[in-house]
Structures are given as C-alpha cells and as structure tokens.
C-alpha cells in the first residue's frame, strides 16, 4: 500500500514538473485528487484493508494528498508568476511616445490679469462691484468734479448716445454710484469696460478695460494709499518691485499721484522695455476729492478716502510682453492658447 501511494505521488510530481499551463495543472488535479482520481481509487480499496490497519492507511493516504496539494499550489504559484512576468514583458510600451491630452480652452489674457488683481484685493477686504457701461453724464463727469465744459471732458474723447447718456470713459463712474448708497466704510473694486474715441492701433483701442478701486472710511490716509498700492505692485510684478509716486492731477482726487513700478525686466537699471528710465507707469490714484465726497452725500470733515484706476490691458501687455493691443481683440487661437 505504502509503495502504491509512493508511486502515485511520484507519478504526480513527475507530471507537475512538465506542466506549462494552468489548464494542465487542473487536469493533473483531477487525475490525482478528483472524484475518479488515483487517490480516491486508493481510498475506495480501503474496504480490502484489515480494520485495524485502516487508520494507518488512512493517514498514509492523507499524507500523500497533502503532499500533492502542496506541490500543486507551489507549482501553480510559480507558473502564475512566470505567466504574469511573460505578459508584462510583452506589454512593455515606449514611454517616450507623445502624451494624450484633453484639449482644454484658455482664458483671455485680460481676465487672467484681472483674476490676479481681484484675488489680491478681495483678500484685502474689497467687494467687487459692477456698474453700467452705458452711463449717465452725471456719474461719468459731474459727480467726479468734472463739470459741463470742463476741458477734461474733451481730453477723454467721449462717445455720446445723447446729451445725457454716454459710454463711460472710466470706471471711476462707479464711485459716486456706490458712495451715494450711503453704506460706509467702503472698500470696493470695480473692473469693467470703458470707451474712448481713439482709433484702433497697436497701443489704442476704442474699447478697453479698467479696474477702479475706492476706499472710504474715517482716517484713511495717503500713506494707506501708498501702502496698499505698493503691496499690489509686489503681488502683480514680483516681491522685489519698488514703487514711485509722482504728483499728478485728476479732477476727482486731491492730492493726486501717478504710480510707477520699477521695471520688472531690468530691475530698475534701465532697458529698452522701460525706455531707459528704470520705471514703468502703471496707474493713477489719489485721495478722493472732498467735493466728490460731498456730492455723493459723504461728509468730508468726517471721512476721507482714496481711489485708484488701473488699465487692465496695460497690465496684461506689460506682464506678458505683448507688443500689440489689437491681438487682444482679434481672438486668433494661436494667440489665445499661449496663456
């Protein structure tokens, strides 16, 4: 009996040795462990064994089964590993082939710049507000201390709809609209389209964008204006950016200033980009003129404020070194996709 079991075991191991596929392994399992398999046959012949011998023989058979099962598992695992390695070897790809990508669209460069401006000022507690582009003469001029027949009205080459309605020439038109609502303190940022009767060329467009900022509270100072805009310049043009404020004149601010930033191309040494001066003019600003406050129903004895206006296209053109304003309104995808 013992010999018989040994023979079965050997026969099985020999076959396992040769097995090259999982199907063959299964066949071997059936042949030796199946219902009609060799070991089952042995168990069936137990009835011929003397009863006192049966436990012993039974143990022998079980040993043989365990040995075969273990070997089967070993071989199976080895085979699986081998097959898996083989498959993976076949599946090797050229990882340097071109990537597959979604064709995502691109945001307009003006709005990329605007998003940066908005992010900064919202972080500083500003509320973003909107105002009409087709605007009343009053808000665009009169409420900003530019009365009828003021030469500044001519300077801005306004498009008129009729005597009282025009296309706003500046986002400052939002100032009085917001202030006359009477809610203080104010920290607002108002981006939007403005219009001036300029023929289209590389640096002019009859339709462009500005961002207006306005802060009104008790104890707002020119120093606050300087600090705010200095931080803004660093945010937009890099931490090393220096600013310079020059006296200027706007009818709706007093004192007024223009702000230059140190040229971000040459760092202020002077280059072609900044026309050798080391500085680039960026925006106009100033303390809100007391008359403007008064006209909007705010007491200039109690409150002060500052305002500033930035040309969005100017920022975008400078930041991305675009040399022709017309590209921004032409919408050639080869341009749009660069941002």
């Amino acid at each position: 009996m013992k010999e018989r079991l040994q023979a079965i075991r050997n026969a099985c191991f020999e076959k396992l040795e040769q097995a090259q596929s999982l199907d063959v392994l299964n066949e071997i399992r059936v042949e030796f462990l199946g219902k009609k398999g060799a070991l089952t046959e042995v168990l069936k012949s137990m009835k011929d064994v003397a009863p006192e011998e049966r436990p012993k023989v039974g143990a022998l058979v079980n040993d043989a089964r365990t040995a075969i099962e273990n070997r089967l598992e070993e071989v199976k695992q080895a085979l699986e590993r081998k097959l898996s390695e083989l498959r993976m070897a076949e599946e090797t790809i050229d990882v340097t082939l071109p990537a597959k990508r979604m064709t995502e669209g691109h945001r307009h460069v003006n709005n990329i710049a605007l998003a940066e401006v908005e992010r900064f000022f919202v972080g500083m507690g500003y509320e973003i507000v909107d105002g009409p582009e087709v605007e009343e003469d009053y808000y665009n001029f009169e409420a900003l201390n530019i009365p009828a027949n003021h030469p500044a009205k001519d300077e801005q080459d306004t498009f008129y709809i009729n005597g009282k309605i025009l296309l706003r020439t500046q986002t400052s038109s939002v100032q009085a609209r917001i202030m006359e609502k009477g809610k203080l303190p104010l920290r607002i940022l108002s981006p939007g389209r403005v219009y001036r009767a300029d023929e289209v060329d590389a640096t002019h467009s009859p339709c462009f964008h500005q961002v207006e900022g306005l802060v009104v509270d008790d104890n707002i100072t020119f120093a606050d204006l300087k600090g705010t805009l200095a931080e803004f310049a660093k945010e937009m043009f890099g931490a090393e950016t220096k600013v310079k404020f020059r006296p200027h004149h706007f009818p709706f601010t007093e004192p007024s200033a223009e702000m230059d930033v140190s040229c971000f191309k040459c760092g202020g040494k002077g280059c072609r980009f900044c026309k050798g001066s080391g500085w680039i003019e960026i925006l106009g600003c100033g303390m809100v003129h007391p008359r403007v406050l008064t006209m909007s129903g705010i007491d200039p004895e109690k409150y002060t404020g500052f305002a500033f206006g930035v040309g969005l296209e100017r920022i975008a053109l400078l930041k991305y070194e675009i040399d022709d304003l017309r590209l921004l309104y032409e919408n050639d995808l080869r341009f749009l996709k660069q941002f």
């Binding site: 908005e118 000022f121 919202v122 972080g123 500083m124 507690g125 500003y126 509320e127 973003i128 507000v129 909107d130 303190p185 920290r187 802060v215 509270d217 104890n219 707002i220 100072t221 120093a223 606050d224 300087k226 600090g227 705010t228 200095a230 931080e231």
Partner: peptide
C-alpha cells in the same frame, strides 16, 4: 507706507 486699519469682508458677488 501703511495699510488701512480695520477688518472688512471681501466679497465676490
């Protein structure tokens, strides 16, 4: 060079 005093909430409508 200073910044305006007081905290105000930033709002995107």
């Amino acid at each position: 060079v200073t910044l305006p005093k007081g905290a105000v909430k930033g709002i995107i409508p």
